[in-house]
């Protein structure tokens, strides 16, 4: 679970770096974006001369990572389902519950 947005803290980068290594070892990964975390998959992120967090998240999706963003958090931040990258969806607590129920390890990144 990632609770912070892009370019404010290192959390999204840490999640990406851990996810990449876990993927290369054959693990399956699910990421639930909560609170400002939903901003990491906004399509319109532009980052001239900097790493693009949206592209990093899209790369994870393309590698088979399931990314869901909290629908309520998105609503409170003016983000619509059409604003987030392909392959990701808005989802509620039922999905977070499924992630928690199905996974072997749970990592949470906040403040």
């Amino acid at each position: 679970m990632l609770r912070t947005g892009p370019y404010t803290s290192q959390n999204a980068d840490t999640v990406y770096n851990i996810a990449k290594r876990l993927l290369s070892k054959g693990h399956s990964i699910r990421i639930y974006l909560y609170e400002d975390g939903v901003c990491n998959v906004v399509k319109q992120i532009k980052s001239p001369q900097e790493r693009n967090i949206r592209d990093m998240m899209a790369e994870l999706v393309a590698s088979g990572v399931e990314i869901k963003a909290c629908g309520t958090c998105a609503k409170f931040r003016g983000i619509r389902k059409t604003d987030i990258i392909e392959g990701t969806n808005l989802a509620g607590m039922a999905v977070l519950a499924r992630f928690a129920r199905d996974c072997d390890r749970f990592l949470s990144f906040g403040f």
């Binding site: 509620g92 607590m93 039922a94 977070l96 519950a97 499924r98 928690a100 129920r101």
Partner: peptide, 8 residues
């Protein structure tokens, strides 16, 4: 409450 409501 979300996770508790889902039976965890």
């Amino acid at each position: 409450i979300g996770l508790a409501g889902m039976g965890l």
